[in-house]
């Protein structure tokens, strides 16, 4: 990753994450197809809702004929981590106009957020509207197209996991967390490692007593508080 922040660099930087979108996008399309959702609904979910894990949950809840209110609440809970990510990312765009801030916010995802955090480690804490928009737009289009293609292929591919594509997303987060660990000079390696161990342990114990999505949120918030306290002691 170079320090350049142009639209073109954004497109280049987001390419490695595209594998994750294609793998999971195809998987979502296939699941949606087997859940009897039409192409229109798949496209609608991907291009309007645009939230990976929430889309899987919405699909299963539609299949179970859950009430609208339950679907809305689940979507909010699953996506509540976006509030944390957007608040964190928004600090880098305070100098941009409100309209540009809203445009960036509309298409933020786990992946483009993580990518931006890695990028700012290389640029002395700077991000640009052009770079972030490029990353956001490529991710958005690839996700939408991959899910629709998955829904069309749905009946044809017997077992897409055979080729290991379902691991692309996990591999991507492993890569992003490692790059974050070695390049965030503000927090440093030892503090970040302590926080990582704390989050992993917290998540491990929390999923025994609550849903995975809720555990993810609680472990994240607890990890941030733990990090703040630890930083004071250093």
């Amino acid at each position: 990753m170079s320090p350049s922040l142009t639209f073109r660099t954004g497109v280049r930087d987001v390419l490695p994450t595209v594998f994750g979108y294609i793998g999971v996008g195809l998987a979502f399309g296939i699941v949606a197809h087997t859940s009897h959702l039409s192409l229109l609904v798949v496209g609608g979910l991907s291009f309007v809702v645009y939230a990976g894990s929430a889309q899987f949950i919405i699909t299963s809840m539609l299949l179970l004929h859950d009430p609208l209110s339950a679907i809305f609440i689940s979507t909010f809970l699953v996506n509540s981590r976006m509030i944390l990510m957007s608040t964190s990312l928004a600090q880098y765009f305070k100098h941009e106009s409100l309209v540009r801030n809203l445009l960036i916010g509309t298409l933020v995802t786990d992946e483009t957020f993580a990518l931006a955090m890695n990028k700012q480690n290389k640029t002395n804490g700077k991000l640009s509207f052009a770079w972030q928009s490029a990353a956001n737009l490529v991710a958005y289009l690839v996700w939408g197209v991959a899910t629709v293609v998955g829904a069309i292929l749905g009946g044809l591919i017997a077992d897409p996991t055979r080729f290991g594509f379902d691991f692309a997303l996990t591999a991507m987060f492993i890569g992003l967390v490692y790059l974050q660990l070695i390049s965030d000079k503000h927090l440093g390696m030892s503090l970040q490692l302590s926080v990582m161990v704390f989050v992993a342990l917290a998540y491990y114990f929390l999923i025994a007593v609550m849903s995975q999505n809720f555990a993810l949120l609680v472990a994240t918030v607890a990890g941030c508080l733990f990090g703040m306290e630890l930083k004071k002691c250093h």
């Binding site: 981590r81 944390l84 990510m85 608040t87 964190s88 600090q91 786990d110 957020f113 993580a114 955090m117 997303l169 996990t170 987060f173 492993i174 992003l176 967390v177 974050q180 660990l181 965030d184 503000h186 927090l187 970040q192 926080v195 990582m196 989050v199 992993a200 998540y203 491990y204 999923i207 995975q212 993810l216 472990a219 994240t220 990890g223 941030c224 508080l225 990090g227 703040m228 930083k231």
Partner: peptide, 20 residues
């Protein structure tokens, strides 16, 4: 200060989601 820990914590938690 709280938000400065969001990247590392969220990415760790997302990794754990697939490992457990």
């Amino acid at each position: 200060s709280f938000l400065s820990f969001v990247p590392i914590t969220i990415m760790t938690a997302l990794c754990c989601e697939s490992l457990f």
